[in-house]
Protein backbone atom coordinates (compact mmCIF):
# COMPACT_ATOMS: atom_id res chain seq x y z
CA UNK A 1 0.00 0.00 0.00
CA UNK A 2 2.66 2.42 1.06
CA UNK A 3 4.81 1.18 -1.78
CA UNK A 4 2.24 1.85 -4.45
CA UNK A 5 1.67 5.22 -2.94
CA UNK A 6 5.34 6.05 -3.01
CA UNK A 7 5.84 4.90 -6.58
CA UNK A 8 2.60 6.23 -7.94
CA UNK A 9 2.21 9.37 -5.88
CA UNK A 10 1.94 11.44 -9.05
CA UNK A 11 -1.17 9.54 -10.11
CA UNK A 12 -2.68 10.12 -6.70
CA UNK A 13 -2.03 13.78 -7.25
CA UNK A 14 -3.80 13.56 -10.61
CA UNK A 15 -6.83 11.95 -9.04
CA UNK A 16 -6.82 14.47 -6.20
CA UNK A 17 -6.67 17.40 -8.61
CA UNK A 18 -9.44 16.00 -10.79
CA UNK A 19 -11.57 15.33 -7.72
CA UNK A 20 -11.05 18.76 -6.23
CA UNK A 21 -11.77 20.38 -9.58
CA UNK A 22 -15.01 18.51 -10.10
CA UNK A 23 -16.07 19.16 -6.52
CA UNK A 24 -15.58 22.87 -6.91
CA UNK A 25 -17.46 22.86 -10.19
CA UNK A 26 -20.41 21.06 -8.74
CA UNK A 27 -20.57 22.45 -5.26
CA UNK A 28 -19.62 26.09 -5.53
CA UNK A 29 -22.32 28.45 -6.59
CA UNK A 30 -19.81 31.25 -7.12
CA UNK A 31 -18.96 31.52 -10.80
CA UNK A 32 -15.36 32.55 -10.22
CA UNK A 33 -14.81 29.52 -8.03
CA UNK A 34 -16.33 27.40 -10.71
CA UNK A 35 -13.79 28.71 -13.19
CA UNK A 36 -11.01 28.03 -10.69
CA UNK A 37 -12.36 24.52 -10.29
CA UNK A 38 -12.29 24.13 -14.04
CA UNK A 39 -8.65 25.19 -14.03
CA UNK A 40 -7.77 22.76 -11.27
CA UNK A 41 -9.49 20.00 -13.19
CA UNK A 42 -7.50 20.83 -16.31
CA UNK A 43 -4.29 20.97 -14.32
CA UNK A 44 -4.96 17.44 -13.18
CA UNK A 45 -5.12 16.38 -16.80
CA UNK A 46 -1.93 18.22 -17.65
CA UNK A 47 -0.17 16.48 -14.80
CA UNK A 48 -1.47 13.18 -16.03
CA UNK A 49 0.03 13.73 -19.48
CA UNK A 50 3.36 14.91 -18.18
CA UNK A 51 3.54 12.03 -15.76
CA UNK A 52 2.63 9.47 -18.35
CA UNK A 53 5.44 10.75 -20.54
CA UNK A 54 7.98 9.11 -18.27
CA UNK A 55 8.97 5.81 -19.79
CA UNK A 56 11.56 3.60 -18.19
CA UNK A 57 13.79 1.87 -20.68
CA UNK A 58 12.82 4.03 -23.62
CA UNK A 59 15.31 5.73 -25.88
CA UNK A 60 15.32 9.42 -26.72
CA UNK A 61 13.39 10.44 -29.74
CA UNK A 62 16.01 12.56 -31.49
CA UNK A 63 19.40 12.08 -29.84
CA UNK A 64 20.77 8.58 -30.15
CA UNK A 65 23.33 8.26 -27.35
CA UNK A 66 23.61 7.77 -23.64
CA UNK A 67 21.37 5.75 -21.37
CA UNK A 68 19.09 6.19 -18.45
CA UNK A 69 15.43 7.11 -18.26
CA UNK A 70 14.23 9.60 -20.84
CA UNK A 71 11.10 11.56 -21.06
CA UNK A 72 8.97 11.46 -24.18
CA UNK A 73 8.80 15.03 -25.50
CA UNK A 74 5.50 14.53 -27.29
CA UNK A 75 3.17 14.82 -24.27
CA UNK A 76 5.00 17.93 -23.15
CA UNK A 77 4.44 19.59 -26.48
CA UNK A 78 0.82 18.56 -26.40
CA UNK A 79 0.34 19.87 -22.93
CA UNK A 80 1.95 23.16 -23.78
CA UNK A 81 -0.69 23.53 -26.44
CA UNK A 82 -3.38 22.40 -24.04
CA UNK A 83 -2.22 24.92 -21.47
CA UNK A 84 -2.55 27.69 -24.02
CA UNK A 85 -6.01 26.50 -24.82
CA UNK A 86 -6.78 26.42 -21.12
CA UNK A 87 -5.52 29.93 -20.62
CA UNK A 88 -7.61 31.24 -23.51
CA UNK A 89 -10.65 29.55 -22.05
CA UNK A 90 -9.98 31.09 -18.69
CA UNK A 91 -9.59 34.48 -20.31
CA UNK A 92 -12.93 34.14 -22.04
CA UNK A 93 -14.56 32.82 -18.90
CA UNK A 94 -13.29 35.69 -16.80
CA UNK A 95 -14.34 38.19 -19.41
CA UNK A 96 -17.83 36.71 -19.35
CA UNK A 97 -17.85 36.88 -15.59
CA UNK A 98 -16.90 40.54 -15.67
CA UNK A 99 -19.81 41.18 -17.99
CA UNK A 100 -22.21 39.14 -15.90
CA UNK A 101 -21.19 41.02 -12.80
CA UNK A 102 -21.64 44.32 -14.54
CA UNK A 103 -25.14 43.36 -15.65
CA UNK A 104 -26.45 41.54 -12.62
CA UNK A 105 -24.27 42.71 -9.77
CA UNK A 106 -23.82 39.18 -8.48
CA UNK A 107 -21.77 36.13 -9.24
CA UNK A 108 -23.90 33.70 -7.28
CA UNK A 109 -25.40 31.10 -9.56
CA UNK A 110 -28.53 30.63 -7.47
CA UNK A 111 -29.28 34.34 -7.45
CA UNK A 112 -28.67 34.49 -11.19
CA UNK A 113 -31.10 31.68 -11.77
CA UNK A 114 -33.77 33.47 -9.78
CA UNK A 115 -33.12 36.70 -11.63
CA UNK A 116 -33.39 34.88 -14.92
CA UNK A 117 -36.78 33.48 -14.06
CA UNK A 118 -38.28 36.85 -13.31
Amino acid sequence: MIDTFLTHYNYYAVVALLGIGVYMLVESSNLVKKVIGMNVFQTGIFLFFVTAAYRSGAGPAVVHEGGGPYVSPLPHVLILTAIVVGVSLTAVALALIVRIYAEYGTLDEEVLRELDHD
Binding site: V87, S88, A91, V92, L94, A95, L96, V98, R99, A102
Partner: peptide, 10 residues
Protein backbone atom coordinates in the same frame (compact mmCIF):
# COMPACT_ATOMS: atom_id res chain seq x y z
CA UNK B 1 -6.57 37.48 -29.04
CA UNK B 2 -6.39 37.08 -25.31
CA UNK B 3 -6.30 40.81 -24.81
CA UNK B 4 -9.02 41.37 -27.37
CA UNK B 5 -11.30 38.66 -26.04
CA UNK B 6 -10.87 40.03 -22.59
CA UNK B 7 -11.91 43.50 -23.59
CA UNK B 8 -14.52 42.59 -26.14
CA UNK B 9 -16.44 40.15 -24.05
CA UNK B 10 -16.10 42.14 -20.88
Amino acid sequence: VIIGLFFVIA
